[in-house]
Amino acid sequence: MSDTPSHAPVNSILPKWIRGPQDFIGGLALVAIAVFALWASSDLQGMRGFSFGAGTAPRMFAFLLLGLGVAVMLVGIVTEGAHLAKYHWRGPLFVSLAILSFAFLIRPMGLIVTAFSSFLISALGTPETKWTETIIVAVCLTAFCSLLFPYALGLPLQMLPKFMIR
């Protein structure tokens, strides 16, 4: 976990009195999650006498997270800490797109098309990709997966697009 730069970014949007922006934002996000969970579990039943309702435990954990989030934020204010790490967009974007396309294509298009296209989309995630080499590996991997999963492991996966098998 050493990808956090130690030098201050030139124009930080956060005020100066926050000395550990990484922790501050991290804690803030935990608080947000906790508040969201409290809202999401607000329709559940609470304690009935001394027995737990469906909502008791979720709310308990949410309050705990809320407290811990605030504590992490406080640590971020009081102690000198790391600055926000630099985010890159290329890797996360194309890997996510590849996963999404897999989810949307697997039912209608079957494994062969889906595996191949997801491989190519995620390969966009780095500028180092060399396309001839990538396409060759994609073909090999697709072939390997279409043998491994349905035949060697016996998982019921549909191979071909729906319109071709009908």
Binding site: A115, S122, A123, T126, T134, L141
Partner: peptide
Amino acid sequence: VPYRLMFPSIVVFCSIGIYS
């Protein structure tokens, strides 16, 4: 094996795994 070829393979492999 260079990472540029490895990571798309892992993405596909993991996706199939989760789906199955």
